[in-house]
Amino acid sequence: MSAASSKEYGFLRANALSLAFGAVFVVTLGGQAISGTADFNAQQKANGLEPVSLLEYVTSSSFGVDVMENWQSEYLQFFLYIFATVWLVQRGSSESKKPGEEGTESDKEQKIGRHADEDSPKWAKTGDWRTVIFSRSLGLLMGALFLLTWVASSLVGWAAFNSEQLAERQDPVSWLGYLGEADFWNRSFQNWQSEMLAVGSMAVFSVYLRQRGSPESKPVGVAHAETGQTG
């Protein structure tokens, strides 16, 4: 069976993966907002304080820091994974290049400059600074998003930290002061560690385990020793 052309696929089916995850993202963010409000209000009650509304909660630093500390770790994960898989291999993994293919590969293999195809992206054909940037654009975007989300999480974490300091009648800290607080690093490390475990285990689990039909897996009958996306 040949692959269907884009004309046979409507907008929804052609973008099903991205749209489905986008929809689940919205639903789960809503779930976080509702359960977060309930959790926040349980603590307010325990401290003898007034409960807050859903709107007040989602415009609070308490909600913001819980969202952004998770975002930053996801983009760190993808940024590191995209770069690490250029240079490091895992023998037998569907997530890895074959041993011996480490590195950025030749212009011919990457179809850039004079090796570009007719339908190659414009910035792949030029062979100048545009190709240099385009060749790294996915990693650059993930790296930039990591830095931006990490800075955002530090700003909102700083505000949340200071409101807790004030509630406990302690002095607020400056933003730079917050970057040296255990709270900031605890929030960062607790998210980072889970991403590293998930990525490392996924890379090696895909050596011996299969998921029929998934591009994240080797075809079911392919040998364990076979590395790379063979099907």
Binding site: S6, F11, A14, N15, S18, L19, G22, T59, S60, S61, G64, V65, V67, M68, W71, L145, L148, T149, V151, A152, S153, S154, L155, V156, G157, W158, A159, N162, S163
Partner: peptide, 30 residues
């Protein structure tokens, strides 16, 4: 491929707006 561009731009917009919104919450000290 035209439709895919909208999904691409949509994701990027949501991420950037999220970053701006949460940063603003932090800077306003909410």
């Amino acid at each position: 491929m035209r439709g895919v561009r909208f999904v691409f731009a949509g994701y990027l917009l949501v991420i950037v707006l999220g970053i701006v919104y949460v940063s603003a919450l932090g800077l306003m000290g909410r």
